[in-house]
Amino acid sequence: MSFEILTFSFMHRALISGIAIAILCSVVGLFLVLRRYSLFGDAIAHSSFGGIALGLLAGVYPLWTAYGVSIAGALIITKIKDRYNISGDASIAVLLSSGIAVGLVIIGLSGGFTIDIFSFLFGSILLVSVDDTILILSLTGIILIVILILYRQILYSTFNEEQAKVSGIPVEKINYLIVFMAGITVVTSIQLVGVLLISALFVIPNVTAIMYGKGFKQTAIISMSFSIFSVIVGILVSYVFDITPAGTIVLMAIGLLAGTMGIKSAGLLSKN
């Protein structure tokens, strides 16, 4: 393996964007996993498919329409879930299938699948532009700052809604905020792993990190480190062997999960 690939500017953009997305997904994903909302990322991603198709049909930059459709879809489904008392997993199924259905109908109307659709389905991290990179970095920065400021409220309402309410935390507003941030995070991450593998980045590093038995901050740091490692190694390995980056990144994360499970079964993880 030659180090020449590290001198390409497209590789710089891919790695910088990839690392930002890795951090973002692991932080937002940790709250989703702890709220038993692991598949919510997947549902938002599928609904973004409808948004992407809409953008391609209308001739607008597809990620903009994807942001609009995903965030609106996520907020509406959360509202419907609370209003009509639908369970979390069922509401995820509704959001997921409506997005794909809308996408398919729009694609049909516009005359069938194009290459563009595939790059959104499976990611295209090596093709990110300078503008994309700036957008990814800005959104990552904004969301991380919001989470840092509201850290206690978000964690408390995730841990126990009722007690958080009694402590005067506006739990419902925090719930919508998380859904809103998840919407932005998913669409931002589409370029890295594509619509189909988003929830892997949300869930796998966090499930792995939780196994180490640490407190909240350490768990978040372990998750971020695993996520960043998977993305960097995944991008480089996939380039060298000319395979898909999205699949490679996710397989790296799964490798870390399997390794952690192995260490844990061998009794090498102390309880404390």
């Binding site: 408390y156 841990f159 009722e162 007690q163 009694v166 402590s167 038995g213 640490k214 407190g215 909240f216």
Partner: peptide, 23 residues
């Protein structure tokens, strides 16, 4: 307020200090 039986996931990654800090 101390609830009857606080409900949380058994492997929720928070330490004793983390929980008290929430309050």
């Amino acid at each position: 307020y101390v609830p009857q039986k606080p409900i949380f996931e058994k492997n929720f990654p928070v330490t004793v200090t983390d929980v008290v800090r929430m309050g």
